[in-house]
């Protein structure tokens, strides 16, 4: 997380390319908010029921997706 010099980025409306990428941010919502799909005990991982480790797995996935969207929509580089 190094600081970059683009303190005054242009802040126009998002272009279509940016809007398309931001849909990815909905994926963690779908993955974690539909509780019936993961409200089960099996398969267990190291004795931890699926319910718990499945939701924990979404943390790195969500980070990955956010980083992707961040890199794809960063404006400082393009102008």
């Amino acid at each position: 997380m190094a600081d970059d010099p683009s303190r005054h980025e242009p802040s126009g409306p998002p272009g279509p390319r940016e809007t398309r990428w931001t849909w990815l941010l909905l994926v963690p919502l779908a993955g974690t908010l539909i509780a019936p799909i993961y409200n089960t005990r099996d398969p267990e991982l190291f004795g931890v029921p699926f319910f718990y480790w499945y939701q924990m797995v979404w943390i790195p996935v969500s980070v990955l997706l956010t980083v992707l969207v961040y890199r794809a929509t960063r404006r400082g580089r393009r102008r």
Binding site: M1, E9, Y52, M56, I59, V63, V67, Y70, R74, G76
Partner: peptide
């Protein structure tokens, strides 16, 4: 300091959720 600072943080802050999940247990 900047918009990018915030965006980078939104990607990095879930690291705390790992701690929270483990703590919950």
């Amino acid at each position: 300091r900047s918009r990018d600072t915030i965006k980078r943080n939104m990607a990095a802050l879930p690291a705390y959720s790992v701690i929270l999940g483990l703590l919950a247990l």
